[in-house]
């Protein structure tokens, strides 16, 4: 009876280790793990936490900085949106009003860590659409003001602005993996009871 129990425990332990290893292998090694894995690999967890908070602060700062001038000058921003020639006329002013406020709120939420899944998803959607709009207008050959951070006429769209947006998008995608992938560690916790 005793022998059967111990062999059962060994089998169970073996099974758990294999599953945990499986999850860890398929998981990004720099993603922020919590729970049992924190004990397993402290160094990696520290690094991933540093990256997670770093990405949140940088992206939050970028969104808040980008919203500032747009909130102060909505009329200038609406002209810039019009020049992109993507949105229908009826949506231009609405976008010029709502988009900067959305960026401000998202930036603040990134900083305080509130509603992270929603903020991260929205930042992905926004950044992808910004990059799409920039590429479209570069391909069209329109020399227009970017309107990314400042409403002044000196910042026209070019490849550099697209690369900057791509860098911010990569931060946002990293945060998505971190926020949505953190479910793995919850599953691990449940396995360990």
């Amino acid at each position: 009876m005793e022998r059967r129990r111990s062999s059962h425990r060994i089998r169970q332990f073996d099974c758990r280790t294999r599953l945990i290893r499986l999850i860890r292998i398929e998981y990004f090694q720099w993603s922020p793990l919590v729970g049992p894995t924190e004990k397993m690999d402290k160094k990696r967890t520290h690094l991933s936490r540093f990256l997670y908070y770093g990405a949140r602060w940088i992206l939050g700062g970028v969104f808040i900085y980008a919203s500032y001038d747009k909130i102060l000058h909505p009329a200038a921003f609406s002209k810039i949106i019009y020049n992109y020639q993507i949105l229908p006329d009826g949506l231009i002013n609405l976008t010029a009003l709502v988009l900067p406020m959305l960026e401000l709120i998202m930036g603040i939420f990134f900083w305080v860590g509130f509603w992270m899944p929603g903020s991260v998803m929205l930042s992905n959607i926004l950044l992808v659409s910004y990059i799409g709009a920039l590429i479209l207008n570069l391909a069209r050959g329109l020399d227009i003001n970017c309107g990314c951070f400042s409403m002044s006429s000196g910042s026209s769209i070019n490849v550099e602005t697209i690369l900057w947006d791509a860098a911010f998008l990569s931060l946002s995608v990293y945060l998505t993996v971190a926020v949505f992938g953190s479910e793995n560690s919850r599953v691990l916790k449940q396995i360990h009871g």
């Binding site: 009003l97 406020m101 709120i105 939420f109 509603w115 929603g118 991260v120 929205l122 949505f180």
Partner: peptide
């Protein structure tokens, strides 16, 4: 579950931003 949570949070963010902006 997380995706559903993200979707309602997105909608709530847009509503909140619109109310504040208007």
């Amino acid at each position: 579950q997380k995706c559903l949570q993200a979707i309602w949070q997105c909608s709530a963010l847009i509503v909140l931003a619109s109310l504040l902006a208007f």
